[in-house]
Amino acid sequence: MRPVAAELTEIDNRTSVGHSLWLTPRSGWEEQPEPGQFVMVSLPHPPTGFGQEVCDAVPMSVAGWEPGRLRLTVKNLGPTSAALLACKPGDMLTVTGPLGRGFSLKATQPLLMGGGVGAPPLLFLAQRFAAQGVELVTLLGGTTADEIFHRSEFPGTVEIATDDGSAGHHGFVTELLDSRNPDMLYSCGPEPMLVKGLEWALVNDIRAELCLERYMACGVGLCGVCTIDRQLVCQDGPVLGSEQLEHSVEFGKVVREAGGIVRHTPA
């Protein structure tokens, strides 16, 4: 596995907080990645106005795929994502991947729950389910209407929740879970939302697959900085099952920054 040069060929799905990039790597990507897998993306040549500090390789979930090209959806969250959003068609990036373990696609009545920029890998998952003829329901949450990514692209039933009530249910997306009876909950988004989703799944005896985010330095299972408990998020994950997380002491509580510095997340 190594970084491969990839041309930014198309930008779509523009919102006020981000957009999607279609990348055409110079090699690989003829085979379909699993939804939930990720890539390490870097900017070898920062766009005008950005310094070398934005060149770092960061993990990003695959939002979509066609033979030979992949889609990433970027939200403006930090210097590297801001630089990615400033890239124009024709610019060159590098991608390493696909990496990690994705979602299982085993459900017959899947329920998807995405928060903010957690929606993109779920879109890829939803498209795969739809291609198999599986009916699905997706719950999407965001702080405000503009932060609901890919709303119109999801196949099946979509319900929305926003913190400010600007679209759909006024409140957290997890409040839409009650009364559902899926055979699997698939979720990606902010960790407090994933924690609530796992609690709900355990109480209702439903299996869950949760796509986690952690700081990564190598992305390929060599350094270990992304470890949650004893599991490597880059390799055992980023999608972990409820049975791998229900007894976790770090899930929802501990994340690490560069250098492995521990940051406890608010309860």
């Binding site: 870097s42 390789a57 250098g259 492995g260």
Partner: peptide, 18 residues
């Protein structure tokens, strides 16, 4: 891993390549 007196964030990626 190698421990230094002061924290080190590490270098910008890509950090590894096969």
């Amino acid at each position: 891993k190698s421990i230094s007196l002061k924290p080190r964030p590490g270098y910008a990626g890509p950090t590894v390549a096969e």
